[in-house]
Write a protein that binds this DNA or RNA. Sequence first.
DNA 1: TGTAAAATTGTAATGATTACAAAATTGAAG
DNA 2: CTTCAATTTTGTAATCATTACAATTTTACA
Lengths: 140, 140
Amino acid sequence: MQNLQKIKDKLQQYKIKPSLIRIKVLEYLNSTREHPNAEKIYKKLLKEIPTLSRTSVYNTLKLLTQKGAIKEIMIEEGEIRYDGINERHAHFKCVKCNNLYDLKLKCKSCLEETDLNKVKVMDEHIYIVGICKKCLKKGE
Amino acid sequence: MQNLQKIKDKLQQYKIKPSLIRIKVLEYLNSTREHPNAEKIYKKLLKEIPTLSRTSVYNTLKLLTQKGAIKEIMIEEGEIRYDGINERHAHFKCVKCNNLYDLKLKCKSCLEETDLNKVKVMDEHIYIVGICKKCLKKGE
DNA sequence: TGTAAAATTGTAATGATTACAAAATTGAAG
DNA sequence: CTTCAATTTTGTAATCATTACAATTTTACA
Ligand SMILES: [Mn+2]
Ligand SMILES: [Mn+2]
Ligand SMILES: [Zn+2]
Ligand SMILES: [Zn+2]
């Protein structure tokens, strides 16, 4: 399909050679908004690539992150989640169901320009922790 | 000194019984803006409390966090830093010197109210990753 | 084909955090 | 001052996601 070409193009755009695992990992991360961790990605791709190793998933995630094609999200200790959506947005982590939702940002920057114009900004992370709509309903 | 009383009051305010270790940990976190991790806090307090155990520091930090007296900051994998300053603010993490600086926020919320008025917000984290002024100068 | 570079794999190590049970301390009651 | 249960603190062992490393496989190109 032409979706494959899009993934390959994106990899090339970030100067990453398009191997099978890299394509599959990026394809998965671009197709979902669930922000999976390495283990979830491994389990998912194992169905398509039976020889896949956990190490390869970790290696690939590290590479994609370093090249800027995906983003690491660190919210809870001992678990890195990954986000393949590159548009600037914030996150909402529900402490009940553990889901991680995307949130829109209404302003370009919440920070004082005077603080920022002296430093080199490489990355920005904004997230809220709380209880989501669904879980609030469940608990009356 | 009367600083001690302030710390005790703050602990009581968050419904935490003021034991020696709790007082010392909170006192340290309220006196610094360096956002230390558990190990740094342990090393620092060991000078004053020679019988101190790492476990006690971890226990105390967990308790203070759960009660809301301090905040965990998770930016780099495998290292939780702690912040005793309760006023809402953002952070800047320098990837060169590894320092974590405080930043002022210019707006009350960067998020769409429509997204937030259906959920329960418990915590908010905003941070920038980049290279600080000092390190930029060093590298010409 | 031959071969060096790159990618992938499996196993072992790492290290911050946590679990757990024992020891010490506290504080109220007698 | 004692007693004793609750709380706090401690030391050791376990956890577990991630990383290091070396071996194997695959790729790309002459
Ligand atoms: Mn996202
Ligand atoms: Mn801070
Ligand atoms: Zn939820
Ligand atoms: Zn710096």
